[in-house]
Simulated assay, not measured.
Amino acid sequence: MIDWKINPSFNRLVAELGKFPGVGKKTATRLALFVLRQPDAEAEALAEAIREMKARTRFCSICFHYTEDDPCPVCTDPARDAELLCVVQEPQDLMAVERSRSYRGRYHVLHGALSPLDGIGPAQLKIAELMARLADGSVREVLLATNFSVEGEATAHYLASLIRPLGIRVSRLAHGIPMGSDLEYVDDATVNRAVEGRQTI
């Protein structure tokens, strides 16, 4: 049996890969071995892709999705319905709604959900920025697409209580999405039905 203690660089790569969501030590080891077997040019291309993404990617100053151009392509797309705003917890949730191809409005990414036990309150989310976007009266409907978890539901109800007094329609994704599920893992057809069946809350 090979003693990998003599190969600290391999162990370091396994440890770094193991930080990825859903990647345990065995999977991290397999990935590290895969990288090790690749030609130097392939390994360098992977490292360069990571460096380039980190260097060039930032938040859109309007919707707070990840982008290389600020504002992002969605916020600057004239074909989008600027009167309809979809609020999601995370960037991957925005991607899930986009994959459904049933929504043509714009977005706002909160970067989390209310969770007092974890020390996450309104100040830790992009809620103040959301309310600033709504202040000019150009949005007629806000679609709350937070996850159907305890935290997601609490966030949706909190946002609804802030938005309703502005005279803006507040809707919620229909419950075609299972309770306790994260939007990024739901299939496209289910997300499509949920968007089409949204309800005022």
Rank of each mutant, 00 (worst) to 15 (best):
L130I: 10
R106G: 02
A113N: 10
P91R: 05
N147S: 14
N147D: 15
T155K: 02
E153R: 05
V97D: 01
A132V: 14
P91N: 02
Q124K: 14
H111P: 02
S138N: 09
E151C: 09
L110E: 10
T146F: 05
R104N: 14
R140L: 09
A82S: 13
G112R: 04
A113G: 01
L114G: 05
F148G: 05
F148P: 10
N147H: 12
H111T: 03
T155C: 06
G112C: 04
A113Y: 05
C86Y: 01
L134V: 11
L143T: 09
A79S: 15
L125A: 01
L117T: 15
G137K: 06
R140N: 10
V87N: 01
A132G: 06
A154D: 02
E151V: 01
R101L: 10
S138A: 15
V88W: 00
P116M: 13
A79W: 03
T146D: 03
L117Y: 11
L125T: 10
A79Q: 15
D81A: 09
G152K: 03
S149C: 09
L94H: 00
L94V: 06
G105E: 00
V88T: 06
A79T: 15
R99N: 09
S149D: 12
D93G: 04
L84I: 11
E151F: 14
N147P: 02
R140Y: 07
G121A: 01
Q124A: 13
A123C: 01
V88H: 00
L85D: 04
E153V: 14
P116S: 15
S115E: 13
Q124I: 08
E141M: 09
S115V: 12
T146H: 02
H157R: 08
G105W: 00
E153G: 12
D93S: 02
P91Q: 08
G119Q: 07
P116W: 12
G152E: 07
R140H: 11
H157T: 02
L110N: 00
L143F: 15
Y107D: 00
C86R: 00
P122H: 07
E129C: 08
S100K: 02
E153W: 03
T155S: 10
A128F: 07
T155W: 08
